[in-house]
Design a binder for these strands. Structure first.
Length: 500
RNA sequence: GCGGGCAUAGUUUAGUGGUAGAACAUCUGUUUUCCAAGCAGAUUGUGACAGUUCGAUUCUGUCUGCCCGCACCA
């Protein structure tokens, strides 16, 4: 597997991805897609939209706003769930969730001799009492130990932060006060900057779908089972964005909420979605053997989820999640129905029954898909140069469907007007249909290599035979470097048949 | 967020308390009848902000970013 540094370097050098705000020193967790990157990214999104929305009868699309009513995030659980106050131990460098850290005052004959701390678990009361007894022995105090009353660290008084020992080291004074790490970006809507004006940038696109569920069933004649798909930006204030675009603070998701009857065989449908999504990855050039499945064990699932399977992919930094496919029951619709007070039930004509549909949620990161496509496409081989010596070649074997340029057109030489003009004509013709590139600079071999490195599947060269002979051109194939002679009409068909 | 390392052109790098040098890439011209050729020329850099100094890319500090670990996270 190619390493991340190589991918990052290539992305930068060829204009796929730049670090955001680079002229100001960069901005951690944000990236900009350059001229080739935006093409590849758009092609990935278009392929997904075509395959999952336009070419299916049971799917419709949606594009909801990024900033929505703040109550949506309260109902979905994001306001609470995405903001866990954390406590750092400055000595051991460990970090704890404040709500899972407990402490108690230790008293002997009503005199406070110190504090003990424990992490939340079933036996924490006994652990705290043992620690208190140990502390009493250590300080050689006589008398009777007072009752150990555990309190949550969140409820500690400011002066107590200095006195509570770290559960990791037992030493006091090393813990920080609880600090907020809200993963949602906040902003204010309207002129006033008070609590009532707080709004959030969405941390996922899914809630926009749930919030519009009633609108869609009322206006688009869909019948369960059906899905709503959405592609859009999402924002998470990640503590440590890392691994290039794999985890960033602003990213793009392609999400589906597929609504099914509560009586449906969800296990079977879940399996079908997993297979369907995997096939789609293969169809855009990610090899099947790079993909895996990570089935979440029951105890790791959110309380409302019935199952969740991640489709994993072999990334430069290891086997990591590419797409999560969860079976979520009807938790979200229930939450929004209760919070909004609006009935969101669907009336199923077939069985004359009203219900809140359950959902299967395939959720995919565009940027992760980009990285997966890029890594899978990266290849090196050796090609003989004009002296017949083998020379290293770097190329991207993109599937024609996602390749930024579908083809490049070259005049073999640029100082022969007939050849040059003819190549411009052919270029213009192809450009009407596809994103194609024209290059007349440098030796022909150099032009081929430049296209190889940005993953252009075909190069079309106009030579003397084109203008003096039967008008045929050469079509050179990227992966094999083989050339064939074709008429221009045949070239169009060839590119079309390749799936561009 | 914590600890450690790092920061010179688009990339890889050399060097210095006194005007920063190369290779590759890019661009122009020329040449070229199919795989990074040749020739001539050109553009581009000390991450940012302070401090010490007559003078800082070099020394010091702060910030920013990157890499590695921890922690966190889907």
């Amino acid at each position: 597997m190619v390493d991340m540094t190589t991918i990052e370097g290539l992305c930068k050098r060829r204009g796929f991805i730049y670090r955001s705000s680079e002229i100001y020193g960069g901005f951690n967790g944000f990236f900009d897609y350059g001229p080739l990157g935006v093409e590849l990214k758009n092609n990935i999104k278009a392929a997904w939209w075509q395959d999952f929305v336009q070419r299916r009868e049971d799917m419709v699309g949606l594009d909801s706003s990024i900033i929505m009513h703040p109550n949506i995030w309260k109902a979905s659980g994001h306001v609470e769930g995405f903001s866990d106050p954390m406590v750092d131990c400055k000595e051991s460098k460990l970090r704890f969730r404040a709500d899972q850290l407990f402490f108690a005052k230790v008293e002997v004959d009503s005199e406070t001799i110190g504090y003990v701390s424990v992490l939340e678990d079933g036996a924490m009361q006994k652990e705290a009492e043992d620690k208190a007894a140990a502390l009493k022995r250590k300080l050689a105090k006589q008398g009777s130990l007072g009752e150990i009353v555990l309190k949550n660290y969140m409820d500690a008084k400011p002066f107590e932060y200095e006195l509570i020992p770290s559960p990791a080291t037992g030493n006091a004074g090393t813990l920080t006060p609880p600090r907020d790490f809200n993963l949602m970006f906040q902003t204010y809507v309207g002129a006033l900057r008070d609590e009532t004006a707080v709004a959030y940038l969405r941390p996922e696109t899914a809630q926009g779908i749930f919030a519009n569920f009633k609108n869609v069933i009322d206006t688009s004649r869909v019948k369960v089972p059906f899905g709503i798909a959405q592609i859009g930006k999402a924002f998470r204030n990640e503590i440590t964005p890392r691994n290039f675009i794999f985890r960033s603070r602003e990213f793009e998701q392609m999400e589906i909420e597929y609504f099914i009857s509560p009586h449906a065989d969800w296990k079977k449908l879940h399996r079908e979605w997993i297979d369907c999504c995997k096939q789609w990855f293969v169809s855009i050039g990610i090899p099947a053997d790079a993909l895996g499945e990570d089935i979440h064990p029951q105890e790791k699932l959110a309380h409302y989820a019935k199952a969740c399977t991640d489709i994993t992919c072999n990334f430069p930094h290891g086997l990591q999640e590419l797409q999560g496919i969860a079976v979520r029951g009807n938790f979200d619709l229930t939450q929004h129905q209760n919070a909004s007070g609006k009935a969101l039930e669907y009336f199923d004509e077939a069985i004359k029954e009203k219900y809140l549909p359950h959902v299967i949620e395939p959720s995919l990161g565009v940027d992760r898909t980009f990285l997966a496509v890029m890594s899978a496409a990266y290849a090196e081989d050796e090609v003989p140069n004009d002296k017949g010596e083998a020379e290293k070649r770097t190329f991207l074997k993109f599937h024609p469907r996602v390749a930024p340029f579908k083809a490049a057109v070259f005049p073999l030489v640029k100082n022969k007007p007939e050849i040059f003009d003819r190549s411009r004509e052919i270029f213009k013709r192809l450009q009407n249909r596809w994103n194609v590139f024209f290059d007349a600079t440098g030796a022909i071999g150099r032009r081929y290599r430049r296209q190889d490195e940005i993953g252009t599947p075909f190069c079309i060269t106009v030579d003397f035979e084109t203008v003096e002979g039967n008008g045929s051109v050469t079509l050179r194939e990227r992966d094999s470097t083989k050339q064939i002679r074709l008429s221009v009409d045949e070239v169009v068909k060839y590119i079309e048949d390749a799936g561009a």
